[in-house]
Write a protein that binds this DNA or RNA. Structure first.
Lengths: 405, 405
DNA sequence: TTGACATACTCCAGAAATTGGACTTACCTC
DNA sequence: GAGGTAAGTCCAATTTCTGGAGTATGTCAA
């Protein structure tokens, strides 16, 4: 008999590194010393020691006693959420949402404001910084800013923190948002596509490890965000999630911005629906008008929205068959229109394979307009607390909580 | 100023667990003690101790001396590949490929044979076991079998090791391949879809961590395998990669097996091409005939293959835009036909967005007919050496190298 | 009420792992 | 050769982890 391995390299199986204790508490998987010992396999003594270290350094705080499981009640601990805040800014074509969150991911304040993208990156990011500073000043217990996430409506090189060819933000191509804003705030700055942020925001609402989520942002443009196994999928060039130029079977001959005919974006986007509604003689100038008419029971607008939903569903069906996610979340302004959602759902269930739909949940966004900033906060906190990738130097470069402004 | 964290939980940043040493050597990232110390950040003493333990237990072996970097030559170590073998079986509709690999992933023997699926799971898996036993007997230095991967042409519940609704293997629905084969071989058994295995096999040829790969298997049916960030993406129900029922713009009215019209499978699969070729009066009975005619310069068959490639490219373009991989690998028998590949490439580059194609490599499979078993070996070795998921009880359940037959 | 038993946690001494520095080996360059 | 450098070993000091004893505080059932 050839040699066998009677010995397994220790540490190969269970990830019980010291930092894992913080993760367990942060993700609500454990809340007492004994629970940590059980889950990680480390001894009770070690668990207590590590918890104490985290308490001493302000990562955790005592949280009273839990319920007895037949013996002494456990002394619970939780993340100390007052040790700082993270900020997220979700920039749109003409509008921005800004918010502050505590270290537990709880929303502290948010505001939204109209934005003048055309003023250029320096001006806009300066404005963002001013808004954030105001919000920070307004907090009750002042806490240091730890990280900022900026969402922009276009492709992003998240590694470098740069904007790439944004269709809806002329003048921003190649702009190093990380450097520009990092100079002002002096904390790590993450830059991300807005649909990606929304996807993460929805995932954060019910974070099931190992689950896959596709988020559809159907507004004046159409885009997707993809979360795979709990991690944002950006693709090779940060361009993942683009379905706007998939071709749909249509008799429309309106040319798309990409030069082709029959692209989803030219047929089923908010802009396209508005254009078609206006052409049909309805008194509309933007997507909101169409949504209002449809909500009031105006049939032509409802019909247009339903068609847009069906066209989008057609494209999504291919995506869902290919990608087989657990969840499809519909967001963006069009997802507020019932005919749109109904049309989309009908086609998805008609066109998808049984295996693709039997586990699939199709829901309308719960986080709503805050999905983007919630996702931004999630990424910022992940960056602060789980800097697993050693080479991921972001912003001020510090791995984990470090000096902040 | 609110409290800041001057202390970072140790172990939060660098993954330097004892088992990491084995991974570094296995993945060819390190080959000497000093290199391991440098890469992991552990002291030279510790690195030497761990290497010695791995040597003592047969995981590693000495491998002579390397080149000097200005001082003493490093004493190299490498994975001890003779400590066992892994097996992979790639079952097709009527054909099977079987192979044995050493623990370094090197192919030792392979054979292919015709298969009678209709004999049923017990019979077929018994036959597989017999073939593997024969091959094991034929090895020079007899080594114990450590794990087996079985690829089947249909959806799979990899977690449970079961086959799910396989279109091309009637009688196999719900069959617990892991249990059936595990009873015979008494080592961990992995079950996986064949296109998935091929994707992993191609990835294994040039394993770049963080890269995304889509593998197209275009044979008598059409399927994809997806590797995300080095990990196989199975989807929620193990059904990821299915593009056979995406609809393509065509004037064909041949109904698909799913009951609809215009599905890719009904238009561009090997079976569809053969059908159309026969209908055009060509003397063909299967895909091989068509490929041969086209290779001989027969224009109608070439034209049909080109159209099939174009239709497939149309569907893939959507997938590539959405998914933004680094690599698209074309495999399956149709990928051997130049007109098919040319048609596919043309449409992909025409229909994809610049961001989706500027980083994209479109290549024809290098691993060829062995891609499936190579992928199977890769998964088996990954299971043996990287059992990071604690709950992943597979086969005989042991995590890491353990008792074997 | 009371005893039996369980869980949660702490304390402490022994065991194990890790480290830094001294030391050896062995190569390169000049 | 001499000096410099990298690779690796040896060893004592240090740090970390563990298991068992002991304490605190519950549940449960008679």
């Amino acid at each position: 008999m050839a040699p066998v391995f009677p010995w397994t390299p220790s540490g190969l199986v269970s990830p019980d590194s010291p930092g894992a204790v913080l993760q367990l508490v942060r993700t609500a998987h454990a809340s007492s010393r004994s629970e940590i010992a059980r889950l990680t396999g480390i001894s009770a003594t070690t668990a207590a020691t590590r918890v104490q270290a985290l308490l001493d350094h302000g990562y955790l705080e005592e949280a009273g006693e839990g319920v007895s499981l037949g013996g002494r009640r456990p002394r619970q601990v939780r993340l100390r959420t007052t040790g700082g805040v993270v900020a997220a800014a979700d920039l749109g074509g003409s509008h921005a949402a800004l918010a502050l969150f505590d270290l537990g991911g709880r929303l502290l304040v948010d505001r939204s404001a109209s934005l003048r993208v055309q003023d250029g990156p320096e001006s806009v990011l300066g404005w963002v910084h001013g808004q954030l500073a105001e919000m920070l000043d307004g907090l009750e217990g002042p806490a240091p800013l730890r990280a900022v996430t900026v969402g922009v409506p276009g492709p992003v090189d998240a590694q470098a923190g740069r904007v790439v060819t944004p269709a809806r933000m002329p003048g921003w191509h190649g702009v190093d948002v990380r450097a520009l804003l990092g100079r002002l705030v002096d904390v790590p700055v993450l830059v991300e596509n807005d649909a990606n942020l929304m996807a993460v925001g929805e995932y954060a609402a019910t974070p099931e490890p190992g689950s896959h989520l596709v988020f559809l942002k159907a507004g004046s443009g159409i885009g997707c965000g993809v979360v795979i196994d709990g991690h944002l999928h950006r693709g090779a060039r940060g361009a993942a999630g683009d379905i706007s130029h998939a071709s749909v079977g249509t008799d429309s001959d309106v040319p798309c911005s990409c030069g082709r005919i029959g692209c989803l974006d030219a047929v089923a986007s908010g802009a396209a629906v508005t254009r078609d509604a206006a052409a049909a003689g309805l008194p509309v100038t933007d997507t909101t008008d169409v949504l209002r008419l449809a909500a009031d029971g105006e049939p032509v607008s409802a019909q247009l929205l339903r068609s847009a939903g069906r066209a989008t569903g057609e494209v999504l069906a291919s995506v869902l068959n290919f990608f087989n996610p657990d969840t499809l979340v519909l967001g963006g302004r069009l997802s507020q229109a019932e005919p749109y959602v109904a049309g989309l759902r009908a086609v998805v269930y008609e066109r998808c394979l049984p295996l693709a739909t039997d586990a699939l949940q199709v829901t309308v966004t719960r986080a709503g307009p805050l999905a983007g900033v919630i996702g931004g906060a999630h990424l910022a906190l992940e960056h602060l607390f789980e800097p697993t990738r050693v080479n991921a130097t972001v912003g001020s470069g510090a791995a984990g909580p470090a000096t902040a402004s």
